[in-house]
Structures are given as C-alpha cells and as structure tokens.
C-alpha cells in the first residue's frame, strides 16, 4: 500500500509542531532528557508532580514535526492527570501506533491524529521519543512519591 502523506501531516500536527504548547523548562520539576542518536532529535520533558498528580508539564528540544507535535500534545493531555492515568494513556498511545487502534480512542484526544505514523515505520520512534521520557520520569517519581527534594 502506498502511504498517504496527508494522513501523516494532518493540520493539527503541523499546528502543534509549528506552535508547540508548553514549550520551555520548569524550575524544580522532574526532568528527563532523551535523544534519538540515529537522527539527532532531542526532547527534555519536565513534570511537576504533587500528591501523585501531574500539576505542570512542559518540554524543550528540537526535532522533526512528528516528535515535536507528539511532545506538545503529550504535555496538554497529561496535565492534571494522576500518574497511573498518564501511564494508561501512554499504553493506549503505543497501542494506537502499533495496531492503528486504541482500546480507548476518546481518551487520547488530538493525539489520535498521529495514527497516520503507523504507515511510516521509520517515523514511529519520532512519535515515541517524548513518551519514552514520560515513562522514565514516572518510573523515577514512583520511587520517591513526587518531585525530588
């Protein structure tokens, strides 16, 4: 099958990549910096967590439109969510990219437009870069119950 460019580069993706939301750093937050050495994309995800709930989320970095849009949408989606719920969304998003279908598609909101990435296997790692950072951030927080002192 011929992959469809307009499925990949939906307007909402271009909008998020050209005008990323929550772009910047957060003082005192948990920060996880990841890079994709194959292509040079870099994302640092900042999570401010209190009482097991994400109070603030932001990201910095540079990369292709898919990695930037995915990170931008991630920070919007996980805001004010309990960590457990953020991990659930993480699993749903990965399922969407792998199978083209999430179990709980409504939960993903705008992120569902990234389903087009499934047709472009080389770009899945771009969409997942910020989500890998989210997983690592939550793993770190789980041990301490919140932001480092």
């Amino acid at each position: 099958m011929t992959p469809n460019l307009s499925d990949l580069y939906r307007q909402v993706i271009l909008d998020h990549s050209q005008h990323p939301r929550n772009f910047g750093s957060l003082d005192g937050a948990v920060a996880v910096a990841l890079k994709n050495p194959a292509c040079g994309d870099e994302v640092t995800l900042f999570l401010d967590v209190a009482d097991g709930v994400i109070q603030r989320a932001a990201f910095e970095g540079h990369g292709c439109s898919i990695s930037m849009a995915s990170a931008s949408m991630l920070t919007e989606l996980i805001l004010r969510r309990p960590l457990e719920e953020a991990l659930h969304l993480n699993r749903e998003f990965r399922r969407l990219l792998q199978t083209g279908q999430a179990d709980d598609p409504d939960a993903l909101g705008d992120l569902e437009v990234l389903v087009g990435v499934k047709q472009f296997p080389a770009r899945i790692k771009c969409a997942l870069l910020s989500w890998n950072a989210l997983e690592q951030a939550i793993e770190g927080i789980d041990g301490t119950g919140g932001n480092p002192p």
Binding site: P3, L5, D41, S65
Partner: peptide, 13 residues
C-alpha cells in the same frame, strides 16, 4: 525551517 526528516519522508512518498 522544515526538519530534514520531514523533507525525507515527503521525498520517500
């Protein structure tokens, strides 16, 4: 300002 990977994906198509 288009990221090179996005350029390469369009060219790939």
């Amino acid at each position: 300002s288009v990221h090179p990977h996005d350029v390469a994906t369009v060219l790939d198509a």
